[in-house]
């Protein structure tokens, strides 16, 4: 369903005009319902790959190659067409939920906006659905959360809100950009579990960006290891773990702290965090 060919991204220095290559001609594809993990150190171009898919790369950047989503050329999309693709087909879950929501607007506004303003659902219907969306991600006191401003909620709670917002449409592709990195350890597992559960329920395809190999292995069907803007290898978690093809992957495997040698299993969601 997603086909990325020779994706390049270059950013020009505003003073010298010198171009830096951030992505170096990466190709990968995604099947319907598949989860692909983009793993690598910070600065390896994982997040930039997501930004290219959404068309939110930094101003002045030059994108090359092609990105096709169900036959639509994303890189050629402009204006209203691009907006519709972002609203209907793609859903981003950003790293820091406190940054992702407008600090001066209530949570309800965030959810309703995604449905009503972005996708044209009548406002009243969107409002009616908002509480239900929150219940689906394990939030019980929906009234309070809907009426809260972002700074009044914890990172884990807010990330659930973002996930609820991402699930409010029927996106073709979920883009998760280090969705748990900004959260504390106990919340991380819960948020990953909810994300994983919702994705499987809806049969969504997902690109999961993380620096955590074990986490990616637990959540994804295939992993792509990135370094300095290039994809070094793509394979199943078992391939990457047991039969790494490059020296870098081997080093990456050796560098991770081995708390659970068998790989980390997602903790089931229990919604306890909703009462904090």
């Amino acid at each position: 369903m997603l086909n990325v060919e020779h994706l390049t991204l270059a950013v020009a220095d505003p003073d010298t005009g010198e171009e830096t290559e951030i992505l170096r001609g990466n190709s990968f594809s995604l099947r319907q319902g598949e989860a692909l993990g983009l793993v690598g150190e910070s600065g390896s171009g994982k997040s930039m790959t997501l930004k290219c898919l959404l068309g939110i790369e930094p101003g002045g950047a030059r994108v090359g190659g092609s990105i096709e989503l169900d036959g639509t050329d994303l890189l050629a999309a402009r204006g209203e067409q691009l907006r519709r693709i972002r609203a209907n087909d793609l859903a981003l879950i950003a790293q820091n939920p406190h940054g992702a929501l407008n600090p001066v607007l209530r949570v309800e506004r965030f959810l309703v906006e995604g449905m009503a303003d972005a996708r044209g659902i009548p406002k009243a219907a969107a409002k009616a659905r908002a509480a239900d969306l929150l219940r689906q991600v394990g939030i019980t006191d929906t009234e309070r959360v809907l009426g809260s401003y972002p700074h009044q909620l914890s990172g884990g709670m807010l990330q659930r809100v973002v996930i609820a917002g991402a699930m409010s449409g029927e996106p073709k592709l979920l883009l998760a950009d280090e969705p748990t990195t900004a959260l504390d350890v106990t919340t991380q597992a819960e948020v990953v579990a909810i994300l994983d559960e919702k994705r499987r329920q809806h049969g969504l395809s997902m690109i999961f960006v993380t620096h955590d190999l074990d986490l990616a292995a637990a959540v994804c069907d295939r992993l792509a290891v990135m370094k300095d803007g290039a994809i070094l290898e793509i394979g199943t978690p078992d391939d990457i773990r047991d039969r790494p093809k490059t020296e870098y992957t081997r080093a990456l495997m050796a560098a991770r702290p081995l708390l659970h040698p068998a790989g980390r299993a997602p903790v089931p969601a229990n919604g306890t965090e909703a009462h904090e």
Partner: peptide
């Protein structure tokens, strides 16, 4: 970030 996020969510 929140403005970029709003753009990415397809808000007009």
């Amino acid at each position: 970030e929140h403005v970029v996020m709003a753009v990415a969510r397809g808000v007009p």
